[in-house]
């Protein structure tokens, strides 16, 4: 048994480092950017100025549609449409790029709701206090509201990230040789499904455990100001 593990481990770790982890990290970064933009578009009330108001309402409609679309359809189906479907419409994407696009859009849709709820959880009084001090909306967001929202959004965002790491296994279905795909290939040769899939599961668990530590570290850092936290 150890022999099998030791011989297949390098291949699996290499797939992990080459595809699983980069896919997860890159998609999460883009997803997060999308999520923040989407959340802000939905959260911020447009000013009365018509030149700002109408474009903003259009943006908001787009944001709503985007979140609805990606939360209402399975991730696997989204990946299939992007990779296998779009070529019929003349858009051909490399597997890795297709996967990054799919994962980013999907993560962005879910995380945008996380961030929006974190923004909403900052009391309205914080805005009033900022406005009486003549902060602009942007300054209030950057200096007061976002720092507080980040702390609240961290645990659910960590959920999204950990979920994404595991969801990268779906990339195998669009021809990417990520870790799970490699474990399948090795199984096809050595007929050890229990061992190989357990090994894959173990490696996913290792990544996710490290992420949990990262989450705890970030939580401590962003909670310095909270009562009862020692810092």
């Amino acid at each position: 048994m150890w022999h099998i593990i030791i011989t297949s481990l390098p291949e699996m770790i290499s797939a992990m480092l080459q595809y699983t982890i980069p896919l997860a990290i890159i998609s999460f970064i883009f997803g997060l950017i999308l999520a923040v933009l989407t959340a802000l578009i939905k959260f911020i009330q447009p000013s009365e100025n018509k030149l700002v108001r109408y474009p903003w309402l259009v943006l908001r409609a787009i944001a709503n549609f985007y979140v609805w679309l990606f939360r209402s359809t399975p991730l696997l189906v989204q990946l299939f449409i992007i990779f296998f479907g779009l070529p019929s419409a003349g858009i051909e994407l490399a597997p890795f790029l297709a996967a990054v696009i799919g994962f980013s859009l999907n993560t962005g849709a879910y995380a945008s709701e996380t961030i929006r709820s974190a923004l909403m959880s900052v009391p309205q009084d914080q805005w009033y206090a900022a406005y009486t001090l003549n902060f602009t909306t942007r300054q209030t967001l950057m200096k007061i509201v976002l720092p507080q929202a980040v702390r609240i959004a961290l645990p659910p965002l960590s959920n999204s990230f950990i979920g994404l790491v595991k969801d990268t296994s779906l990339a195998s279905s669009i021809t990417i040789l990520e870790m799970f795909q490699v474990s399948q290939q090795i199984t096809a040769k050595n007929y050890q499904p229990l061992l190989m899939y357990s090994l894959a599961a173990f490696l996913y668990a290792v990544i996710c455990t490290l992420l949990t530590f990262l989450q705890h570290y970030l939580e401590r850092r962003t909670s310095r100001y909270v009562k009862g936290s020692e810092a």
Partner: peptide, 28 residues
């Protein structure tokens, strides 16, 4: 020309006491 002091003070919890006092004069 005005500054408001609220019933529940509404300090900014993510800023230190000093930053609570200085952030607005510095940024605004």
């Amino acid at each position: 020309k005005t500054s408001m002091v609220f019933q529940n003070w509404n300090l900014f919890p993510n800023l230190t006491v000093l930053q609570n006092v200085t952030t607005a004069p510095i940024t605004v």
